[in-house]
Design a protein around this nucleic acid. Structure first.
Length: 638
DNA sequence: TTTTAGGGCTTTTTT
DNA sequence: AGCCCTAAAA
């Protein structure tokens, strides 16, 4: 009798699933059943008697991790523990929560996002007493992050003057000492600090090596050097590593991901088995032909050609609009046509663009025609001012040494604590070697600050201490409501933002709802757990595919998804490929891979659009048709 | 000393 | 839309 594995997998997939011990790489073309292989393989391992908690699957988004765990558990007919599949970053957090004391932080560390990091770098620059440097705090953050993500690579920083390099080193050092003082880590640290732990504390490494006997890495083409090193260290003893990826879908090189990781796998793991999946189960032939003919123009790739069994299907449609408004109008009428004539649901349709800025005009036209839609990403929920403000309160409650959060809200709503007072407070805290929070608690010793301001500082600290006490016995959603009421945040919003205060209040209500449902799913979760959760959430994670809405997103965000109909807009030289990539061969190939990712999301209908003229920075600008159009179509279009 | 208003600038992609 | 900077009001 055939098992569920033989029944549902083709020979190559089955081979990958049944490979148990030793290194294995699976080159999985777009739509070739990559997720299926991973979930069946996990189920197979467990079926063979391997305990679920000995398996570690690493992905890039929580959504992918959750989906794979769910599918594996429904295959097995029993629930699986959450740690089985997780993101690189949440794995890093888990390691740090257990071991970070070795590195001089405490368990309740906070995770800084990019905005927080930029603020911390500003503080760093300030403490070095630098006037306007050769780069902005934002640029410094990018350079520092880049350096951190290239640990182990011999690429040097892209700076010409060595004086800049020295300066950057100084800023970096100061930034990291601020992070440590604040008991904070940035995104990069979530990988780098576990790596350092593993390198410097062999006992710690051994305990993780012993625990995870089977390691699986999804989207392997997008791992960067530190992530790769982390994985290699974990598998050093048993070499039971399975990586799944597709070099043609590598689109995060700019973030340090290294295509060589997947191309060199066999060198790093001698004797590795390699399986190539070329059978595509997603798209019709004409769509796949277009994608294949596009990607053939890249010189850096492992030769592989996807085959479809789904029949020829519809031709790829091309529409060149005179301007971007006509393009938007075409997108909307196409969506309506697909819904009426092809009986597609809104949720089966997606619009992809190269940059977020392109979404606005599409949204306008969708809104006007009452087509329901959802934008994935953009100004993401957790980066909105009102959300970040309230989260900053929660962070200080969890971790009083968090200076960046303190600076954010100590005067929000206004408590008449301005720049001058803060400077005095900072100077005094430096002198007494106290955190700013501790210094505010002892405001009485601040002789240079007026008595009334001293009182304000003390009562602020007292309030926060009260909240901290309360947090021990109050659920996070209740606590948040109390904070908002106590500080009069809604009233402040109404005063400061008369136009959109209601929207902002709604956002905060949504935040509280998120907490409530998080508590329902995780009854034992405390404030720390919630803060960790929202730090690691990505745009795609918040996308709700069960609602019947047209999806709008960047091509980057579309990775790993599929839709019956896909519209890729703005196929113009300078937009897609992006202007910053035009004069660099490698960057151009990455743009092409990005376009390939977008095109291969489509199951049955693929539309390409471009505008001959587009409003940019207040001026009309004429754009050439993207080279990708002819590479894709090659006379196969309508 | 703090707050407010106005002008300039920004975004390529993100865990 | 939000942030920084500056100058003037409160």
């Amino acid at each position: 009798m055939k098992s569920v594995f033989e029944e549902n997998l083709n020979p190559e997939q089955l081979e990958a699933v049944k490979h148990i011990d030793g290194p294995l790489s699976v080159i999985a073309g777009a739509g070739s059943g990559k997720t299926r292989v991973i979930t069946y393989r996990v189920a197979y391992l467990i079926d063979q008697g391997i305990k679920p908690n000995r398996i570690l699957g690493l992905t890039f988004t929580n959504k992918a991790a959750g989906e794979m765990r769910q599918r594996a558990s429904s295959l097995l007919g029993r629930p699986l523990p959450p740690p089985l599949m997780r993101t690189f970053h949440s794995f890093g957090v888990r390691v740090l929560r257990n071991e970070i004391q070795h590195l001089g932080y405490t368990k309740r560390f906070v995770i800084y996002d990019e905005d927080d990091s930029v603020r911390a770098i500003k503080e760093a620059i300030k403490s070095l007493k630098l006037e306007k440097g050769p780069f902005s705090p934002k640029e410094a953050r990018v350079a520092i992050s880049r350096e951190k993500n290239e640990v182990g690579l011999d690429r040097s920083l892209p700076l010409r003057k060595s004086s800049h390099l020295t300066l950057l080193r100084a800023i970096s050092e100061s930034y990291h000492s601020i992070l440590k003082r604040n008991n904070a880590v940035d995104f990069d640290d979530l990988i780098l600090l576990p790596l350092r732990l593993f390198e410097d504390y062999p006992r710690v490494l051994r305990s993780y090596q012993k625990r995870y006997r089977y390691v699986l890495v999804d989207e392997y083409q997008d791992t960067n050097a530190p992530q790769y090193r982390l994985v290699k260290m974990l598998c050093r003893g048993h070499k039971n590593i399975c990586v799944v990826g597709d070099p043609d879908q590598s689109i995060y090189r700019w973030r340090g991901s290294d295509i060589r990781n997947i191309l060199n796998f066999e060198k790093d793991f001698p004797g590795a088995r390699k399986i190539v999946l070329e059978q595509n189960y997603r798209s019709t032939t004409l769509i796949l032909d277009a994608a294949n003919s596009l990607i053939r123009n890249n010189s850096q790739r492992s030769t592989k050609n996807l085959r479809s069994l789904l029949g020829e299907g519809e031709k790829v449609h091309l529409f060149i609009a005179e301007d971007y408004e006509i393009e938007a109008d075409f997108v909307v009428s196409t969506i309506q046509k697909l819904v009426q004539k092809q009986k597609l649901k809104y949720r089966d349709i997606a619009v992809f663009y190269r940059t977020h800025a392109q979404s606005r005009i599409i949204e306008e036209y969708l809104l006007a025609e009452k087509v329901p839609y959802a934008v994935v990403g953009g100004v993401s929920f957790y980066r909105r001012k009102e959300i970040k403000d309230i989260v900053a309160y929660l962070r200080i409650i969890a971790s009083p040494s968090d200076l960046i959060s303190l600076l954010r809200i100590i005067n929000v709503p206004s408590r008449k604590i301005g720049k001058v007072t803060l400077d005095k407070l900072a100077a005094a805290s430096l002198k007494k070697r106290l955190t700013m929070y501790e210094m505010a608690k002892e405001a009485d010793s601040l002789t240079k600050v007026s008595p009334s301001t001293r009182k304000t500082l003390k009562s602020f600290v007292q309030m926060m201490d009260e909240f901290r006490e309360k947090a021990k016995s109050t659920p996070t959603d209740e606590l948040t409501k109390e904070i908002i009421a106590r500080i009069g945040y809604y009233e402040m919003l109404k005063k400061s933002f008369p136009e959109d205060a209601e929207d902002r209040i709604d956002n905060l209500r949504e935040l509280i709802d998120t907490m409530t449902s998080f508590l329902e799913d995780n009854p034992d979760a405390g404030l720390d757990d919630f803060l960790e959760r929202i730090s690691l959430i990505s745009d795609v994670d918040t996308w709700e595919d069960e609602k019947n809405l047209v999806s709008l997103m960047t091509v980057h965000n579309s990775k790993g998804l599929e839709f019956d109909a896909v519209v890729i807009v703005g196929l113009e030289e300078g937009i897609f490929p992006h202007i910053n990539s035009l004069d660099d061969h490698d960057k151009l190939e990455e743009e092409r891979r990005l376009c390939y990712v977008g095109a291969t999301r489509a199951k049955r209908f693929l539309y390409l659009t471009a505008a001959e003229s587009r409003l940019r920075h207040g001026e009309y600008q004429a754009n050439e048709e993207s080279r990708f159009i002819s590479e894709l179509l090659d006379d196969r279009c309508d």
